[in-house]
Design a protein around this nucleic acid. Structure first.
Lengths: 316, 316
DNA sequence: CACTCAGTTGCTCATATGAGCAAAAGTTGG
DNA sequence: CCAACTTTTGCTCATATGAGCAACTGAGTG
């Protein structure tokens, strides 16, 4: 092949095939093709760099470590977990939930208390956790509203499920998410029971939360806390979504202070100050609020799908 | 992770990710995960074996070396070339043609004379050959019919194209593929010009041919040598297709000796006796005739697409 | 509880490969 | 045609990895 008219690409392809498919050594390939083993090595490196050789990890537990590192660096996070895109995007919620379950299971030191929010995403995480994922963790609800749960068959809330699977204790927040009048909210937050739960939430070792989208499909609308006019008004004020029931704009600022004052739960600053605040998010409709959360310091760990990760890494 | 509830698959995936995506050594991975480097090595081997790590050669020039070896062994071939399936199967003809062109270019010793048949497959091969693919090769037509070419714009036959690109000489066979009467055929084959060309074809170093399917789309029907009744009769007699215009059954036997006697060109036994007979075939409609060619010793080299190769390797 | 057998582990030593460097080869401009 | 610069090559030496083996561990049986 030394004086044949074959171009370089063909040589690279042959070398890659002999090495990866035939299992031949670089020495053997060099002898076969009349090249030095050093040249063969360089061609293999070029084949990998140019994408002619593609090495892919194919497994439900696989991650995208390169994207994870980029996310950590871009947003100064202590941890990022990215689940590869799959051919069945309906599967993404389950796979991100499983990755979140894996991450919780490997938290070190094992937390005494975890504060959790609620929503479909965290419900999936609770479902993916294995029995005995930890030993005796107290799971505290950190924002209101879980009692207004209309889904039939969901007898135990996600906080209860997470706690049960760790042979731990669930501490539920017996309060609506949003009160009609400020006075009522202040009264409830002063009540010893509610105040005690909020205090335990504020002292948690780990915060686990997701975010909501500011649209008509919102759990707040579904559960009667907001109506369509409310949502329109919030969107008009620039809300991209809610964290712990608190509606924020792209910069992470509360868009409606009056509404916020009537909302029950710990403050967003508590997430910013926390040593370990874990944010789980899936889906294109949440890209805007996801960007806000990671860029305004509300989380130390993000767990998400590949499409969301790529969106977060795009220049705006 | 030594006492975590994570299962083995998760460990394998993490190890594979750290090695192939992060470029860490087995030593480094072992230190990170609390495993020996020997254990890490075994997990990587298992990841490759189990298909969790997939290494693929992605390039228009790529081949399927494993299938090639299986074909060589199954059919006692000296060479087999298999082109990977692509997402655009319309592209297969071009890619197989390119692989055939590559193969011709690397023939050693460089042949003095090549005998060729005709058809769309070889036309594509001629198109894929580079200028100067060889130096001064004589290309001889070994079966009749090329002159009855109705395709507009195809000013030079494939034999002429192959010869020109090698700065060589084309020797065309000035004869119809099939004669109406046996006497006419005998007369033409005795003519000094035609007899000389057939003699040169019989003495070629390399034979390059494809096969035709026994159906209404056949080039013989298109060119008026056969009509639909003829095709029906051939099929009734068990014909799976034609090689050099000669219709054969699954065992490689001539199905209509009378028709065969009126057909102009070298015999199929000459292909069987040749040192180097190269068979190029693409497409599912040719699987049956392809199987006949490779299993009845008509070729020493087969060049085909992945689907055909897999069909040829299937047990019947 | 002890024995046997199968599977797994960590090791030594040999082999395979890569990094960095000096020399050689190729290209470009005057 | 020659000089200067860039690119490529082959090498030495260090590192990374695998094969084969002995020892260890776990499971099953009497």
């Amino acid at each position: 092949m030394s004086d044949a008219i074959l171009d370089k690409d063909l040589v690279i392809v042959r070398v890659a095939e002999l090495y990866y498919e035939e299992g031949k050594t670089q020495d053997e390939i060099g002898a076969l093709l009349g090249l030095s083993r050093f040249k063969v090595g360089r061609l293999l490196t070029e084949a990998r760099t140019a994408g002619i050789v593609r090495i892919e990890i194919v497994h439900p537990r696989a991650r995208r470590l390169g994207l994870e590192r980029e996310l950590r660096e871009r947003y100064d996070l202590s941890e990022a977990v990215v689940v590869p895109a799959s051919s069945d995007s309906a599967d993404d919620l389950k796979r991100v939930a499983r990755a979140a379950a894996d991450q919780l299971t490997t938290l070190r030191p094992v937390p005494d208390t975890i504060a959790v929010s609620w929503g479909r995403t965290l419900t999936a995480v609770a479902a993916e956790l294995k029995e005995g994922w930890a030993r005796s963790v107290k799971v505290v609800q950190m924002n209101g509203g879980v009692s207004v749960n209309r889904r039939p068959g969901s007898a135990s809330s996600l906080a209860t499920t997470i706690a049960r699977k760790a042979s731990g204790q669930a501490v539920l927040l017996p309060s609506p998410a949003i009160l009609d009048r400020l006075e009522t909210k202040l009264a409830i937050e002063s009540d010893r029971t509610v105040a005690g739960v909020l205090a335990q939430a504020s002292e948690a070792d780990v915060y686990l939360f997701t975010a909501g989208v500011c649209d008509y499909n919102s759990a707040h609308v579904e559960n009667g806390y907001l109506n369509h006019e409310d949502v329109d008004e919030l969107a008009r004020r620039g809300a991209v979504g809610d964290v712990l029931g608190r509606y924020i704009d792209a910069d992470g600022n509360i868009v409606d202070p009056e509404l916020d004052a009537r909302t029950v739960g710990i403050s967003l600053n508590r997430l910013r100050e926390a040593t370990s605040s874990v944010f789980v998010t899936v889906g294109e409709n949440k890209h805007d609020i996801a960007r806000t959360v990671v860029s305004s310091g509300m989380c130390s760990t993000v767990i998400t799908d590949e499409m969301t990760a790529r969106a977060l890494l795009e220049e705006l």
